[in-house]
Computed example of a mutant assay.
Amino acid sequence: MTDRGQDALGLSRDRLQIGPSAMVWAGDHLRIEIAEMSTPHAQMVTGEVIVRPSALTQVEMALTPDGAHVWRPFAPKADIEVRLNRPGWTWTGHGYFDANFGTRALEADFSYWTWGRFPLRDGAACFYDAQRRDGSELAAAIGFAEDGTPRAIDMPPKARLPRPGWMVRRETRADAGHQPRQVKAMLDAPFYNRAAVQTRINGEDTVGVFEALDLDRFRGPWLMPMLAVRVPRRPGWPGWV
């Protein structure tokens, strides 16, 4: 949540430290330690999130033909515990842990994408749809068993979701004839939307995490100055949170 200088970075085999916050692999779970200043109200956010994977995978999926962008679903299904310093911000549930890696900026190679991860009775399903700047498209569906084994799954058709407050275009995957719906707003920004979405996948109703990313908007000249104001910056460490 804060841009920091190089002095704020610490890296070892099991720990990534960025200023006062860290991610720690503790044998069989990931502990995310949070000590940050929120925006726009400058309030402290402290606590931790524990991610306990049901399995870990070695799966990687290239998002461009040359492999410049890669999606890595480390733990497509996990149990989580959240303990933060706000009323109602302590809870347990299901979750996941993944990451994207790349050697070029996202906006250089993509104009738009959507992604969704949905828990199923026997694992989880993930969908990646993207429009590349070279005119080609990515449309990927991948399932994971409880033990993390990847497997092929049928690709349901695209279905539109209503646009949110910032009017980012949204579409996800759903069985033919089923209308997905947002059940919880998570983040609504001029170029990005994240929400909990109810859909139906191969006959099974499920609620999962969905995101839509408009990279044409992101690289627009009117947006970059907004990001510079929105994100706190701390050039040195140790120092202020």
Results as ranks from 00 to 15, higher is better:
residue 2 T to S: 07
residue 76 P to N: 11
residue 220 G to S: 14
residue 102 G to V: 02
residue 203 G to T: 07
residue 4 R to L: 11
residue 171 E to G: 00
residue 21 S to P: 05
residue 110 F to V: 02
residue 207 V to C: 11
residue 44 M to C: 04
residue 195 A to L: 08
residue 168 V to N: 00
residue 92 T to E: 15
residue 175 D to E: 09
residue 219 R to W: 04
residue 23 M to P: 01
residue 218 F to D: 00
residue 149 T to N: 00
residue 136 S to A: 10
residue 52 R to E: 14
residue 143 G to F: 07
residue 143 G to C: 06
residue 142 I to H: 05
residue 150 P to T: 09
residue 237 W to C: 08
residue 57 T to H: 08
residue 145 A to N: 07
residue 199 T to M: 00
residue 76 P to M: 08
residue 179 Q to F: 05
residue 131 Q to N: 11
residue 155 M to Y: 12
residue 9 L to A: 10
residue 238 P to A: 01
residue 111 S to D: 13
residue 237 W to G: 07
residue 201 I to V: 12
residue 28 D to S: 11
residue 28 D to W: 03
residue 49 V to S: 02
residue 98 D to M: 04
residue 187 L to P: 04
residue 212 A to M: 01
residue 134 D to V: 09
residue 208 G to E: 01
residue 177 G to E: 02
residue 71 W to S: 10
residue 186 M to S: 02
residue 128 Y to S: 12
residue 107 E to Q: 09
residue 104 R to K: 13
residue 136 S to D: 12
residue 61 M to V: 15
residue 153 I to D: 10
residue 156 P to S: 02
residue 80 I to K: 11
residue 197 V to E: 08
residue 32 I to M: 06
residue 110 F to S: 09
residue 79 D to L: 13
residue 52 R to Q: 13
residue 40 P to L: 14
residue 211 E to T: 00
residue 43 Q to F: 11
residue 6 Q to W: 12
residue 7 D to L: 10
residue 152 A to L: 14
residue 4 R to Q: 09
residue 27 G to Y: 07
residue 191 F to K: 04
residue 179 Q to D: 12
residue 179 Q to P: 01
residue 194 R to K: 06
residue 222 W to L: 14
residue 50 I to T: 13
residue 7 D to M: 06
residue 63 L to C: 05
residue 68 A to G: 12
residue 149 T to Q: 06
residue 124 A to D: 05
residue 76 P to C: 09
residue 19 G to S: 06
residue 82 V to K: 04
residue 92 T to W: 05
residue 18 I to A: 15
residue 210 F to Y: 13
residue 72 R to M: 08
residue 112 Y to Q: 00
residue 101 F to Y: 10
residue 2 T to K: 03
residue 173 R to M: 04
residue 79 D to T: 07
residue 225 P to E: 10
residue 13 R to M: 11
residue 181 R to V: 03
residue 217 R to E: 01
residue 28 D to P: 03
residue 87 P to H: 08
residue 3 D to N: 09
residue 20 P to M: 02
residue 53 P to R: 05
residue 151 R to K: 15
residue 91 W to V: 01
residue 30 L to D: 08
residue 21 S to E: 04
residue 192 Y to G: 07
residue 137 E to P: 00
residue 84 L to V: 05
residue 107 E to I: 00
residue 190 P to Q: 00
residue 221 P to K: 02
residue 26 A to F: 01
residue 144 F to E: 08
residue 189 A to V: 12
residue 140 A to S: 07
residue 227 L to R: 06
residue 22 A to L: 01
residue 238 P to E: 01
residue 170 R to D: 00
residue 54 S to N: 08
residue 79 D to C: 07
residue 24 V to I: 15
residue 155 M to N: 11
residue 11 L to N: 05
residue 14 D to A: 13
residue 132 R to S: 08
residue 4 R to M: 15
residue 150 P to N: 12
residue 139 A to K: 13
residue 102 G to N: 04
residue 47 G to W: 02
residue 170 R to P: 00
residue 153 I to V: 15
residue 88 G to D: 06
residue 16 L to K: 06
residue 46 T to S: 12
residue 201 I to S: 01
residue 133 R to W: 10
residue 153 I to M: 14
residue 6 Q to M: 03
residue 59 V to S: 04
